[in-house]
Amino acid sequence: MPQPPSVSTTQFKNRVRSSLRNLNMKAVTSDQKAQRLRAYHAIGSVVAEVVPGRASYGDDRLSKLAEAIGYKAAALTKLRAFASCYNQQDLSQLCKLADHVSWSHVQLLLSISDKSKRTTLQQSIVNNGWSKEQLRQAMKAKSTDRHAGGRPLSRPTDPEAGLRQIDEESERWIRLCREIWMEGGSSLIATLDSLPVTRRTDKLRKQALSSIQKLRALKKECGILQRKLEKLA
C-alpha cells in the first residue's frame, strides 16, 4: 500500500494558506458563504491526502498540522471527513445552498454515512429553514423512530418458559424500583426531590411526563395480563 506523502508543517501551511485567508474574511453574501465552505473542503482535502486515516498510536501528525495553523486536531478531523463525504459535485450543490446550509449544519450532517439520507436532510434544512438546533432535533427524532422498536423480542419456547419470563422481568422491575428509583438517599426520586427549582428545566419536566405516560401504559398492560393469568390459575 503506498504511503501518504511526508509533508512538513511549513509545507502544509503553504498549501492551505489561501483557504485560511478565505476563512478569515466575513461571510455575508451567498458567494462569500460558498467560498467559506470551499475553503473548509480544500483544507480537508489536503489533510485527507497527508493523514488519510485514523492515526496509529504515537502518530501525532494531525496534532502538529492543527497546531501549525492554530486549529485543534478534532477540527481537522471534521474537515477531513467533510472532504471525504462530499465530492466536488456534492460540494458544488452544497455551495448553491450556502445561504441556508451553514458549516454548523454540515458538521451535523457529517455524522450521517448514508449519502441519500444526508442529501434529503440537507434539502430539508432549505425547505424548512432549520437552524442547527432544529436540524439536531430532526436527526434525533429520526434516530428515535428507527430504534423505537428495538431488537425483535424472542418468544418463549413453551408456556412454562413464558411464565418464568414474566417472573424474571417482574423481579427485575421490582429491584429497579426499590434499589435504584425509589428507596434510599441516592435514589432517583430522592435526587429529583432535592433539586432546586432553578434546575427543574422544561427538558426535565418533559422527560418526567414521558416517564409517567410509559408507567401508565405499563400499569394498564400489566393489569390486563394479571387478570388473564388469574382466570387460568
Score class of each variant (00 low, 15 high):
Ser211His: 13
Ser102Glu: 01
His100Trp: 05
Ala83His: 06
Ser56Gly: 05
Asp145Arg: 13
Thr9Leu: 09
Gln89Met: 13
Gly150Phe: 06
Glu171Thr: 13
Gln165His: 15
Glu171Tyr: 12
Ser113Glu: 14
Arg178Ile: 04
Gly162Trp: 11
Arg80Tyr: 05
Ser170His: 10
Ile112Asp: 02
Thr120Gln: 07
Ala83Ser: 09
Ser102Lys: 04
Ser104Met: 00
Leu232Lys: 05
Asp90His: 09
Leu23Arg: 09
Val126Cys: 05
Gln93Asp: 11
Asp31Glu: 09
Asp59Cys: 03
Arg15Cys: 10
Ser63Glu: 11
Asp158Arg: 11
Tyr40Asn: 02
Trp103Thr: 01
Arg172Pro: 05
Gln35Ile: 05
Ala141Lys: 01
Asp114Met: 01
Thr201Lys: 11
Leu76Asn: 10
Lys220Val: 07
Ala81Gly: 05
Ala141Leu: 02
Leu215Met: 12
Asp59Gly: 01
Leu195Ala: 03
Leu79Gln: 13
Lys64Arg: 04
Asp90Gly: 07
Arg36Asp: 00
Arg118His: 05
Arg80Lys: 09
Gln32Ser: 04
Gln89Pro: 12
Gln3Ile: 14
Ala217Gly: 06
His100Ala: 07
Pro4His: 05
Gly184Cys: 00
Gly70Ile: 08
Arg21Lys: 11
Leu163Gly: 08
Gly162Glu: 12
Ser45Met: 06
Ser124Phe: 09
Ser56His: 06
Arg200Cys: 09
Thr77Arg: 14
Arg38Val: 05
Asn128Ile: 09
Arg216Lys: 15
Leu94Asp: 03
Pro196Ser: 09
Arg216Ser: 14
Ile189Ser: 09
Asp90Ala: 09
Trp130Cys: 01
Cys177Pro: 02
Leu195His: 05
Asn24Pro: 10
Lys231Phe: 04
Lys220Met: 09
Pro196Cys: 08
Lys231Trp: 03
Ser104Pro: 00
Cys85Leu: 15
Ile125Asp: 02
Ser116Gln: 11
Leu62Glu: 02
Trp130Phe: 03
Ser187Asn: 03
Leu109His: 00
Ile174Asn: 08
Leu153Asp: 15
Lys220Cys: 08
Leu97Pro: 02
